[in-house]
Simulated scan of single mutants.
Amino acid sequence: MRYIHIDNVEPGQYLGRTIFSGNGAVLLSDGVQLTVYMINTLNRIGVTMIYIKDPLFEDIEIVDVVSEETKRAIMKKMGETFHSIRSGKDFNTKHINGSVDNLLDEVMRNKEVLVQLSDIRTKDNEMYVHALNVSMMSALIGIQMDLPMSQLRELSIGAMLHDIGKVELITDDTSDDLKKHHTWRGFEILKNKRELSLLIAHAAFQHHEKMDGTGLPRAMQGEQIHLYARIVAVANTYDNLLFQTSELGRQMLPHEACEHMMVLAGGQLDREIVIHFLRTVSVYPTGTSVKLSTKETGVVVGQHRGLPGRPIVRVVKSESGTDLDVVEVDLAKHNTIFIDNILQ
């Protein structure tokens, strides 16, 4: 499989990974042959990157921290929860607790797997995918920081619900703009759920605070910001850099986002937490096409847990115009070879 931009997809190619709707239903199945209509529809619903099958890379296995089955189940429960809130109804915290328990179970089993945020997003499912990703990354950071299971669970629930204030119907007439901010609304929703720890509510309340005191809603700084919120802020920032338009005028690629995170460390974000985070994330996701400093092009086919920026790249060279010579370059062993560019 290769991971490519939707603009470079051609009719007749085969989809490499299933695309899901917001409620977990299948939109397009793995293996379907793509038509012009399908490609245009994916473009229209906000899909920017997809996996396609490629005979030269058919053995590439994308190893996820959380399985597709678990992701679908979580997205379904998140959809039900957010629908209840939009309708002005109470929501069932047992669904969220169950989702987090399943997520944590898989994260603990796969904690050595590098994070690759390659789930295909649509306008319909992006809020749920974002919530799931922030929860998963927050849990991995918490594991890196040796947090006990009770705290990992609180952290993961707070991360999954960090944007819950965005889906609440605004019914009050307050003139206080800060209290209209989604973090404040989220805190108000969660603090009234007695079955949830108040610290979970603070993860939603403070995740837009910044270490240098320039954040919202209360311009808190440093240790005034709860640990859960500082962790969620790191995970939330990274996911947003990848999937929202940045100062570059586009979504950032993973290596650009990692570099930007390092710039923010110690200023807006907690430096120690950023360091822990960067140990868990794949800088060059498997399936990504790259150009090496040798001027050769290839596809990332493997990762190193301890060296996320030095993956294994499969280079396909054309010999005599017909035969193909396949060479795998392990950048962890070839210290003088670097990735120069990402090819989309």
Results as ranks from 00 to 15, higher is better:
Leu140Pro: 00
Gly302Met: 02
Arg72Val: 15
Gly22Tyr: 00
Arg194Phe: 12
Phe57Asp: 01
His260Ser: 09
Thr288Trp: 01
Leu140Lys: 10
Phe91Leu: 05
Gly266Tyr: 15
Gln13Met: 15
Gly249Ile: 03
Ala257Tyr: 04
Leu15Arg: 01
Ser84Pro: 08
Glu112Asp: 14
Arg310Ser: 08
Gly186Leu: 06
Thr286Tyr: 00
Arg153Trp: 06
Glu223Arg: 12
Ala204Met: 07
Ala332Asp: 03
Ile225Lys: 08
Arg218Met: 11
Phe187Leu: 10
Phe20Ala: 02
Ile339Asn: 00
Ala201Met: 04
His226Glu: 12
Val63Ser: 02
Tyr238Arg: 01
Asp239Ile: 01
Leu198Phe: 09
Lys291His: 02
Thr322Gln: 09
Thr336Trp: 03
Val32Ala: 08
Ile50Met: 03
Val316Arg: 00
Gln344Asp: 15
Met1Phe: 06
His181Ser: 07
Thr183Ala: 08
Met160Tyr: 07
Ser87Lys: 13
Met220Arg: 11
Pro148Trp: 02
His207Gln: 04
Ile275Ala: 15
Asp30Leu: 07
Ile52Leu: 05
Pro11Thr: 09
Ser289Cys: 13
Asn240Phe: 13
Ser67Asp: 10
Gly165Val: 01
Val100Cys: 01
Val290Trp: 03
Asp146Tyr: 12
Leu264Lys: 09
Arg109His: 13
Gly12Trp: 01
Lys191His: 09
Glu126His: 11
Gly88Cys: 09
Leu196Ala: 04
Gly22Cys: 03
Tyr3Leu: 03
His304Val: 09
Gly213Glu: 00
Val327Asn: 14
Asp340Leu: 10
Met160Phe: 07
Gln144His: 10
His83Gly: 06
Asp124Ala: 13
Asn40Thr: 13
Ile312Ser: 05
Ile6Cys: 05
Pro217Arg: 00
Glu319Lys: 14
Asp172Phe: 06
Ile231Ser: 03
Asp30Ile: 02
Val134Met: 08
Leu241Pro: 06
Glu154Asn: 14
Ile337Gly: 00
Leu56Gly: 02
Ile342Cys: 08
Asn192Leu: 14
Arg121Asp: 08
Tyr128Cys: 03
Leu199Lys: 15
His162Pro: 03
Ser293Asn: 04
Glu328Leu: 06
Glu247Ile: 08
Gly22Asp: 01
Asp54Val: 07
Thr294Ala: 07
Leu147Asn: 02
Ser318Arg: 10
Gly222Thr: 01
His181Met: 12
Val63Tyr: 11
Val115Met: 06
Asn43Thr: 15
Asp325Cys: 02
Asp124Gln: 09
Val263Met: 11
Ile312Arg: 04
Asp119Met: 11
Leu132Gln: 12
Ile339Gly: 00
Thr280Leu: 05
Val300Pro: 01
Gln224Met: 12
Arg121Ala: 09
Leu161Ser: 10
Leu169Arg: 11
Met49Asn: 14
Gln268Phe: 07
Ser138Val: 15
Met136Leu: 13
Asn240Asp: 14
Trp184Lys: 09
Ile189Cys: 03
Thr171Arg: 15
Leu198Met: 05
Arg279Leu: 10
Glu10Lys: 15
Phe91Gly: 02
Met252Gln: 06
Phe187Trp: 15
Lys210Thr: 12
Glu61Ile: 15
Leu216Cys: 06
Gly24Lys: 01
Lys180Thr: 14
